[in-house]
Design a protein around this nucleic acid. Structure first.
Lengths: 273, 273
DNA sequence: CTAATAGTGTCTATTAGACAGTATGTT
DNA sequence: AACATACTGTCTAATAGACACTATTAG
């Protein structure tokens, strides 16, 4: 038919196959300090996600993840970075591809496939004010074999998600997530958030991902709190310190003023590598 | 602007954003028996992937993963299942989404984004003959911190891939894969294969995924061989049996004829669950 | 002094690694 | 009998879990 690749390409009709639009959605996780009950106590940590209130249709006035259509001259990852910059004004952020969601009717407008990314940021590095339609929601997770119950709370509004975990046929470790309750989140972003939380929990245990959410200097108790709030369980101090010991380097800085013994500040060993 | 979601949708222009085509590529892994050196020895196992020789441009006559364009009325997963059925005539196969590859110039025709899936099959269940342009390639991996060297061999032809693992900025456990050598595989399928192998290796250690590649009844030595060939290292018998013990159920079947002590046959405990 | 967190020592339980030994088929 | 694999017992090393103890600050 054609004599060469060049000839084929010259004659190629790009409309041979049907086309669709793609979006990049980005789930930005962070931890932050909560209330301090009295001068002696530590502030408790919160685990939170950034949501945007939609100004336009579809799903007008509902909350969604930051996201947007990708351009033909950028990858989904580049789009995610662009959106991240728009929303938070942050560069050089930890970003990893999560999953591509592509249910036929996930967008009421037309067929739109979304590749989701997970970003981890240190909230302290956020100097600029958020756009006014953006808000951090604290995350509370209660997970069983069958269901994930997620409560998102920004202080004014509460979003409750119930997601059923249905085992896929023949698949041993993968669940198919099915929304059982969600009245406030747009699109299938409830599923994206559930997947993101699950990915983060897993990676916390076998990677150094957590340090992307920490300030440069931190105490081991703070670090432990972050693990605890994300994993949703208490850890034993000595065990935690044994495991973390070879990932951090002690600095000569200390944090005082707590009404109790001051804590040494550490930094991540592999910083700047 | 619009008074309701309905009104908005009625007036929505689906060509507001540029569009692209998507493909679903599927990396089908399997293990199979190799040669038997003498009547006493066990057959050695091979770890293999199914490739297709391209009949048309682009990349005419090069090897690629089974794949194809998705239709507007099917998801990427459904497309993967359809393609899997076309190539192998197998239903109900373990399938999981791997990664979405979307470098701008990954396809010389135009912007095409590909979502890749990994399928695991038991080769013994393959009764039908493969399409004549399809072939199983045995996989040999040699991986270091910096590089992955993959050799694919179907008995007649050998494909050598060298992939550089470049640490992404700020990312602690994710590498960016960069092709350093590949002359025979089409598109970016070398990267897909490298990611697939890496995913499979990881999941082998913390899930029961391996049983999707096993026949109904198998001996523990066979199972151990499969782990060893995929992980690329020898395991100690007692340790292996301790770990695997609670995942399998002993049957009253045995396999004889080996010029040595017969082995008990086991089955996967969670079969049919 | 007290309440609260910071940080360590040590005992125990569990799991992983190593090696040597016994068992049992085919030729 | 010999060979090759099947399978087990047991010792040791490493890791994880638990608890109790000491250290140090602000008020």
């Amino acid at each position: 038919m054609y004599k060469s690749e060049e000839e084929f390409l010259k004659n190629y009709n790009p409309d041979e196959f049907e086309k669709l639009s793609m979006t990049s959605d980005i789930i930005i996780f962070s931890v932050s300090d909560g209330d301090q009950k009295n001068y002696r106590k530590l502030k408790d940590k919160h685990f939170s996600v950034l949501l945007i209130k939609r100004k336009d249709y579809p799903f007008k006035d509902m909350w969604c993840l930051p996201g947007g259509f990708i351009r033909m001259d950028e990858t989904t990852e580049e789009a995610a970075k662009r959106i991240l910059l728009d929303e938070t004004n942050l560069h050089d952020i930890y970003l990893e591809q999560l999953y591509t969601f592509d249910a036929i009717d996930r967008d009421p407008r037309m067929r739109i496939v979304s590749t989701s990314y997970m970003a981890l940021i240190d909230k302290n590095s956020l100097r600029d004010k958020l756009p006014e339609n953006a808000s951090w929601f604290n995350i509370l997770v209660d997970e069983s074999d069958k269901e994930i119950n997620i409560t998102l709370d920004n202080g004014k509004e509460e979003i409750k998600l119930v997601i059923e975990k249905k085992l896929k046929e023949l698949t041993t470790d993968r669940y198919k997530y099915i929304t059982k309750h969600n009245t406030k989140l747009a699109f299938d972003h409830d599923l994206v958030i559930a997947s993101g939380i699950s990915r983060l929990k897993n990676k916390l245990e076998y990677t150094d991902i957590v340090f992307n959410m920490m300030p440069r200097y931190f105490s081991l108790s703070e670090l432990q709190q972050v693990y605890e709030i994300i994993l949703g369980k208490k850890l034993l101090d000595p065990a935690f310190r044994r495991i973390i010991a070879n990932k951090v380097r002690k600095t000569n800085k200390v944090k005082t003023g707590g009404g109790h013994r001051p804590s040494a500040l550490f930094e991540y060993k592999e910083r700047d590598k």
